[in-house]
């Protein structure tokens, strides 16, 4: 897995949405993604950063919950349609869950601590969910 330590100028955007909750664990992840989708639909340049348990949203093989709850995988599939193509994941969180950025449900760039700090700096607005 390639880990990016430095985020280039092209990463700059208006809104960075940090997703720190896993799928099927309450609705925090979905509500964070909804905020990102609405911002993108309103024409804002949005980046996503999966961090902590949030990286579990990127795990392949997710299904519906026992009450038929959809989870967030269908939403991730829609990101491209909303032109959200700058997605990042915290490399330490990926490693903690034995995940590799090469085998996830969407394309993400793995970033280390320095990269995370740069993402914070190059977005004018940061929202954590």
């Amino acid at each position: 897995m390639t880990v990016t330590t430095s985020v280039d100028e092209g990463a700059a955007g208006e809104l960075l949405v940090i997703l720190r909750h896993g799928p099927h664990s309450g609705i925090a992840l979905k509500e964070g993604l909804d905020a990102a989708l609405v911002a993108a639909a309103f024409g804002r340049r949005v980046s996503l950063l999966f961090m902590g348990s949030g990286v579990a949203a990127l795990m392949p093989g997710q299904g519906k919950g026992p009450l038929d709850q959809k989870g967030t995988l269908p939403t991730l599939d829609m990101l491209e349609m909303y032109d959200i193509d700058r997605c990042y994941a915290d490399s330490a969180s990926l490693e903690a869950l034995d995940m590799s950025a090469d085998a996830l449900v969407i394309d993400v760039t793995a970033v280390d601590s320095g990269g995370v700090a740069q993402l914070m700096a190059c977005h004018s607005l940061v929202m954590t969910f």
């Binding site: 208006e14 809104l15 609405v38 639909a41 309103f42 804002r44 929202m127």
Partner: peptide, 16 residues
């Protein structure tokens, strides 16, 4: 939710 995004962009500070 669009209103939240507008607030975040238009105001000098958004505190969560």
């Amino acid at each position: 939710l669009g209103q939240l995004i507008d607030l975040g962009v238009d105001c000098d500070r958004l505190i969560t």
